[in-house]
Amino acid sequence: MDPRKLRNIKKAKNIAFYGIIGLLAAATLTVLIIIIGYILLNGFSHIDVEFLTQEPRKMGKEGGIFSVIIGTLYVTGVGILIATPIGIAAAIYFTEYAKEGKGVILIRFFTEILAGIPSIIFGLFGFAFFVIFLGMGWSVISGGLTLAMMVLPTLVRATEESLKTVPMSYREGSLSLGATKWQMITGVILPCCKPGILTGLILGIGRAIGESAAIMLTVGGSLRVPTSLFDSTRTMAVHLYTLASEGLSQEKTYATAALLILIVLVINGAANLISSKLGGSNGN
């Protein structure tokens, strides 16, 4: 074939290749902007003081979502409070105590597997175990415990990543000064990892707030402000589902969705900020 023709074909191929990739990447970005933009634009104007501070009336058709916000805080708080110490301790085990062997590989493997279990299965489990078997009923505590299991892998992974970045010399230095292993961990290693742990925590909170299928089966859907751990309540994500599927109020649905998106934006922004700061201060 004529070499010039060959070069032209090559050129055309190149253009098509970069064109398609650029197009698909641009499409992805556009979809993200449309989703966030559409929901914020339609919902933002309906978020006001009344919406945030009044209790829902007529199943959420009127009034605000105060009790739902409180319910979300309760369930998320319980879940994170339970999962955080366990997650940090598990990560400490993997980086500081575990000796490579079959057992450790297996424990790691199951931590990854736990991360892949879909939320509806967590919901079924939480319903069978916490709600029925342990007799906790549809409650904040049933939902919190279920959530704790769901966010555990996220916390372990984030903490472990940041524990790994602590230089070996810190450990050696601390031990050579006569510190015990535990003193070394609490006095030297954990303080170095604060930003990393915080990032994991924030991402865990994000996942917990957005969760709906598992919460629906374990917390129920009561619209009253929960006063004890054993009360049923409703989280924002579940509330959004109920409003959307029953078509109760367009306004309130958009407002709830917009609030959820706002929280996601703030959470991801914060996590990103902290982890980029971490990257900057790693040198010291």
């Binding site: 559409y38 994000g206 957005g210 994500a237 579940v238 649905t253 959820l260 996601v264 990103n272």
Partner: peptide
């Protein structure tokens, strides 16, 4: 293909996509 500094922003967008709750996707 993307330059480093833009890649970071693009990555953040993808993370945002992962952070949006599934019920919001359903509603959308």
């Amino acid at each position: 293909i993307l330059q480093k500094k833009w890649a970071k922003a693009f990555k953040f967008s993808i993370e945002l996509l992962a952070g949006i709750p599934s019920v919001v996707y359903g509603f959308f």
